[in-house]
């Protein structure tokens, strides 16, 4: 979307919608906040999955790890974590506004940094794996984290850990969460948009298209792969921290490491929108989230079957996604130059 007027107009429209949405649809503030998070999910998945060709099934790990890191920091700032969790929620952590927001932002910061460190350490091990081994290995990481969190009593084990109580009214809390997630999604988008224009962007595309050739050219493939994953981890960690505060309760199975919901949604949304494109994940997340919110509760348990079918159809019959399809159909709109082969170069080669 490199048209001169299109981009600014589009950005302005999205920004206007983001700012106005909580006022226009006050009843749906949380749902739209989740939409921003979904966009963040899809965008971060697509860095390694779409742009670099490393399809992770375990990115949800960073979401959950960030959530637990922030929970431990936020609780640990005011009381002893072990005692707090062993009380099984018997003790509520009620804070004033100042303390609360300091704890939330400290939690987000630690989640971001901690997850980047995780990405570096785990990535160093995982990125020696290619293709299916990488996908299954990362799935293994997410599942192990879930098992570990449910057996580790200090962080509450299977019964989880209650987050500090928001000092104000519930409506106000959802508005605050909305703002943070909206800003995070925007930051994520701007970061990846910038990253894809740098040497980094070109290098990860080279890794996707032919890693062996990139290696033979001396590209620091492992370094690029770890950076790509670290960027994902950075934003996913923060989104986890925010989501933990939003739900008010962190628990390993459904909230922190929901491998079959959020973990799969990331992949599905990128694929649906068109992986390996800047806007694809955004479009995919929006379409998916709206369809899901509208139909989910009416499907009486069949929604999961439908999700599986969607994955199959998407992967097998519509792999280019919405963006890929649109680019094929209207290349001029996306500023793709369809140059005619010039005869001039031919003879020079001879």
């Amino acid at each position: 979307m490199t048209g001169n007027w299109k981009s600014p107009a589009l950005y302005a429209a999205i920004l206007a919608f983001g700012v106005a949405a909580p006022f226009l649809f006050p009843g749906y503030t949380t749902q739209i906040a989740i939409l921003w998070m979904m966009i963040l999910f899809a965008l971060t998945w697509d860095i390694a999955g779409g742009q670099m060709g490393y399809n992770s099934l375990g990115n949800i790990f960073f979401f959950g790890a960030g959530m637990y890191l922030s929970a431990v920091i936020q609780v640990g700032m005011f009381t002893d974590v072990g005692t707090y969790t062993s009380a099984r929620g018997g003790e509520q952590l009620v804070l004033g506004y100042g303390d609360y927001f300091v704890s939330v932002f400290a939690g987000m910061a630690v989640a971001a940094v901690g997850c980047v460190l995780f990405a570096i350490v785990i990535g160093w091990v995982m990125f020696g794996l290619r293709g299916p081994y990488f996908a299954i290995g990362t799935l293994g990481i997410a599942l192990s984290a879930r098992e570990l969190a449910s057996t580790w009593e200090w962080i509450g084990g299977g019964s989880g850990i209650a987050m500090p109580v928001y000092p104000g009214l519930p409506d106000e809390k959802s508005q605050v969460s909305y703002i943070i997630l909206f800003v995070l999604a925007i930051l994520t988008f701007l970061s990846v948009r910038w990253l894809y224009t740098t040497r980094f962007g070109l290098a990860i595309n080279a890794i996707r298209d032919d890693e062996e050739k990139a290696e033979a050219m001396g590209v620091h493939t492992t370094r690029y792969k770890i950076i790509a994953w670290s960027v994902s981890a950075f934003f996913l960690g923060m989104s986890g921290a925010v989501f933990g505060n939003m739900t008010g309760f962190v628990e390993p199975m459904e909230v922190a490491f929901p491998t079959v919901t959020f973990g799969i949604f990331m992949v599905v949304m990128s694929l649906l929108g068109g992986k390996g494109t800047l806007w694809g994940p955004v479009i995919g997340a929006t379409v998916f989230h709206i369809i899901k919110e509208v139909t989910w509760t009416y499907m009486l348990g069949w929604q999961w079957v439908a999700l599986g079918v969607l994955i199959i159809v998407n992967v097998v019959f519509f792999q280019q996604g919405i963006m890929g399809w649109a680019q094929d159909k209207w290349p001029e709109f996306f500023g793709i130059e369809v140059e005619e082969a010039s005869a001039a170069g031919d003879e020079e080669a001879a």
Partner: peptide
């Protein structure tokens, strides 16, 4: 990855259908 994800979708459908 196509075969991996497609069979993953199959897995999801089967487990959810069994659950239903």
């Amino acid at each position: 990855f196509t075969s991996l994800l497609a069979t993953f979708g199959i897995a999801l459908v089967v487990q959810q259908a069994l659950n239903l």
